[in-house]
C-alpha cells in the first residue's frame, strides 16, 4: 500500500513535469486565473471560441 502510494506520487510528479515539457499543458499559466478575474477579461482556457484545445480538460 505504502509502496503503491509512493509510486503514484512520483509518477504524478513526473507526469506533471513531462506534460509541461512536451507542451501539452501549461500549469503555471493557470495561476493567472485568480489575478485576472474580471467578468469580461479573456479566460486563460476559454471554452467557446477555441475548439482546438480540447485536450486541456482537467483529468
Amino acid at each position: 500500500m505504502t509502496i503503491f502510494l509512493v509510486v503514484m506520487l512520483y509518477w504524478y510528479i513526473v507526469y506533471l513535469y513531462r506534460s509541461e515539457k512536451k507542451g501539452e499543458k501549461d500549469y503555471e499559466k493557470l495561476g493567472k486565473i485568480a489575478l485576472d478575474d474580471e467578468l469580461d477579461s479573456t479566460p486563460v482556457n476559454s471554452s467557446d471560441p477555441l475548439p482546438t484545445d480540447n485536450k486541456e480538460q482537467n483529468k
Binding site: 502510494l5 506520487l9 504524478y12 510528479i13 506533471l16 513535469y17 509541461e20 500549469y27 503555471e28 493557470l30 495561476g31 493567472k32 485568480a34 489575478l35 478575474d37
Partner: peptide, 27 residues
Amino acid sequence: YYFLPKESGQAVYSYKLSLLSFWGLMF
C-alpha cells in the same frame, strides 16, 4: 489560494505544487 495571490498581485508560486498537495491531502 485565491485571496493571497489576488491581494498581493502575485500568481501562486508553483501551480504544480498546489495540484500535488491537493491530491496528497485528499489521499
